[in-house]
Design a protein around this nucleic acid. Structure first.
Lengths: 192, 192, 192, 192
DNA sequence: AATGAATGAGGGTTCATTCAT
DNA sequence: AATGAATGAACCCTCATTCAT
């Protein structure tokens, strides 16, 4: 409970002013308890950053996994996957922005834990694409699929990072639609 | 001259430890002059960040523009463009990393100046693609082209940001080759 | 019972890290009860220091008194006295070290109580020497005896304080032997 | 200059309230400059303690060495030596008190440096006694002399540490006189 | 009687910025 | 023009003490 308050408070502050400009006192206050109590839950300020990153990843992953459960994978499934993922990235754009911009402030030993989660997300789409190709009996090498998956993940993040540019030209729906078309055209031409 | 020393010094320090962990003293020292003199050239520490971002953008753009000068645009030209751009992003990956991770630390009023430069880079590839479609007499709507250009730019940055994952699986050449194939397959199927 | 646990716990912690570096939480834990309960027995952290000093003095005194019970005092008795005292100071050297180094942290009003006990210890040896001189019908002024007694006490403490130097050169037995010889030669020449 | 101000300020504060209860801010203020400037001269608070201990030792040693320069050593010389040393310890009693009570707070790596100086002081009196015995053609083993020297040093410190007791009974002159008599009686009886 | 969560004053330390020289 | 000593606000973190349960 306290932990969640703290993480929520921290995220909202990090969104506003970034990790470095946020003080532990502010986080304590935003969390609704004293600085002393804050330090019952963490050892150093960096711990908060880790908890925040970890929590955001978990939230993103949980939402994606809830949205994507597929057996038979068609074009439609892929579109649904993209749509769901981009929607999540839109909902959590502040959180995602925070996370990626502060990753480098994570203590060296915590980084791998977080990066592992990033790869898990890539793996979700890798799996989706693999099933699609299997169903269509298209033979595509793993590296290619892996790269497609990376691209998809990055395109989701990009919607958050580059909103200053993209929002002016596209709604989320349009963005999703275009990206889907570009993707599907690419992978469908693979089979020929 | 002094300015360049300062920017160079700052970049090298930012690469190593990030903007926030770098002190003005260190920047002065790395620049080869005193802290007092440093403050002849800037008003606040943030100014240095701005100068650094600005300079990196200029360097990237300059190199790209030097690499890409085309009249008649073929598949080959596009591949050359991608290759050159990715190469530049590989060469300057530390710089690029620094820049994007510290953008949010820029004072609000300086951000637009920098973002404008980002859009100029998008425009370069937008132009390239437009010419390609014109030459092939394919009719593609501007929004689609714009998005393709964004994707290309982001894929270049991605090579820097996600090197921890991508480097394990691809060389720069392979990465370029795959991305090119995915791109060209997508845009070529547009014409049909 | 609780009190003793607390004092024992505190002493062992003070030995290890000194009074100031030991936290009340640690003392509570080492004592086997909660911080809340700890504060049932004390008002401030300083109280613990007082209890500790007091307890150490009592222990030292008790042991000395148990070791020294004399009617007829000869050279031999004095040697036994020295030996016993030095042995005790050797056994309790950590405790004694703690006590003397933290004395100045005692609240002003508690100091006299503790210093009184120090004087009681001096008095023990004063008494011993007095009896010796009485038995030998040597006339020695009280101040001189008092000073001899102080010197003895300090030589015992010195074995603890200066162990970093003395241990390298002497065993406890050698140290005792030499000090005894120096003492006895001094006081014996008094009679002439 | 600054350094000396700082050390002087620190000593006076340590005398008053001990090392742990003195804040760096107070030291800065007492030194007549700001906390920022203080940290130009030291890296951590412990450094101040080291500088203080070092400085006190140097001062004590310098004074002793200035007072004791002997060729031909007689009883008189020894008395002069004792008198000078005890006088110095009386003058610097606060400093000496500070030093010994805070030694344990010194970082592990600095302790040996300071202890070495303590041994140098012992060596001074060791030398004095050796010369005395040489001159009198008395054969005394080194360990015995070493211990005598230690005793002398400790008796000097004792005058500072136990002033609460000794001052009530002795003036410095009386204390010196008694201690000298006890010493000389002891060592003179060695020759027989 | 016993707990331990909660507090927040206060500690050591850093560093952007200024300004006398 | 150039310096770097000096500043002090502000940071992160600790821990003695309290008090509701």
């Amino acid at each position: 409970m306290r932990r969640e308050q703290m993480i929520k408070g921290a995220i909202s502050l990090f969104k506003e002013k970034g990790y470095h400009r946020t003080t532990t006192r502010e986080i304590a206050k935003a969390s609704g308890f004293s600085i002393g109590t804050l330090y019952e839950y963490i050892r150093t300020k960096e711990d908060i950053l880790y908890l925040v990153c970890d929590q955001i990843y978990d939230e993103v992953q949980e939402k994606i996994k809830k949205a994507l459960h597929f057996r038979h994978v068609t074009k439609e499934t892929i579109k649904e996957g993209l749509t769901a993922y981009f929607k999540i990235m839109d909902d959590l754009q502040d959180e995602v922005l925070v996370m990626y911009q502060e990753l480098k402030s994570l203590p060296r030993e915590m980084l791998p834990v977080v990066l592992k989660k990033e790869l898990e997300m890539v793996a979700i789409f890798e799996d989706l694409l693999k099933r699609y190709f299997d169903q269509n009996q298209t033979n595509v090498c793993d590296e290619q699929i892996h790269l497609y998956a990376h691209n998809i993940i990055v395109q989701g993040q990009m919607w958050g990072f580059r909103r200053w540019a993209l929002r002016k030209q596209y709604t989320l729906e349009q963005y999703t639609e275009w990206q889907f078309q570009q993707l599907i055209r690419g992978i469908d031409s693979l089979g020929k």
